[in-house]
Design a protein around this nucleic acid. Structure first.
Lengths: 108, 108
DNA sequence: TCGGATATTAGCACATTTGCTAAATAGCGA
DNA sequence: TCGCTATTTAGCAAATGTGCTAATATCCGA
């Protein structure tokens, strides 16, 4: 119903896969190259690459290219806003979204 | 990696579908019978029934049978703990999980 | 420019998901 | 018990998702 639905859909679809959730958790410690991520799993590099592409498509990670490598890092705000937003919509009593300072005045 | 992983997996898989997310949001206003839920969508009753079964399997809704009907309602805590827990694991800075009083002393 | 390393894209196989219709089950009231 | 309503179960077709191997970019150093 609300404008961010398609947005949200991509994020939740991305979160449906356990490998992708684990990648996000691994990225919590800071950016990792594609190869470093591959090393943390037993599945093939192309499969990981596809997962990363999906996460990027959902806006949950960004990439930085340096030399031969591509470094991936979390887009934390995106995750927090989409998932936290949904959570707040369904059980607002149970969660508090911590707003980013300086941006919260803008809307609503 | 942590014990609640399988648990979490079921919840995120359940949340991957937009119809199911909408059902959860609709249930926010209180319990609804299966038929009332069907009326809110354009897809068939059997399809809704399956979505409800999946949500129940994930522990996100409970059912109450009364007469001819089956009433579904949210299990808010389950949603908050699973999803909020993941969110806290990935971007702890951005979200606060509001703990249920009386149960929080147990672990740590 | 060649070689090796890093990653992604292509293409295929297999499993899962989702929707539908038809049929079965359950409860209630006459 | 019969019939009506509410809901789920069965079974099937089409779409999606996920993993693999082979092939294709890209970049850097010698």
């Amino acid at each position: 119903m609300n404008e961010s639905d398609e947005d949200t859909a991509g994020v939740f679809r991305a979160l449906a896969d356990p490998t992708r959730r684990q990648i996000l958790q691994d990225l919590r410690g800071g950016e990792l190259s594609a190869g470093e991520i591959v090393d943390r799993f037993t599945i093939s590099a192309p499969s990981i690459s596809r997962h990363l592409g999906l996460l990027k498509g959902a806006g949950l990670v960004r990439e930085r290219r340096a030399a031969n490598r591509i470094y991936y890092s979390l887009v934390e705000e995106r995750l927090a806003l989409c998932v936290g937003g949904f959570l707040s919509a369904v059980c607002p009593e149970q969660v508090v979204l911590r707003r980013k300072r300086g941006r919260s005045a803008a809307k609503r």
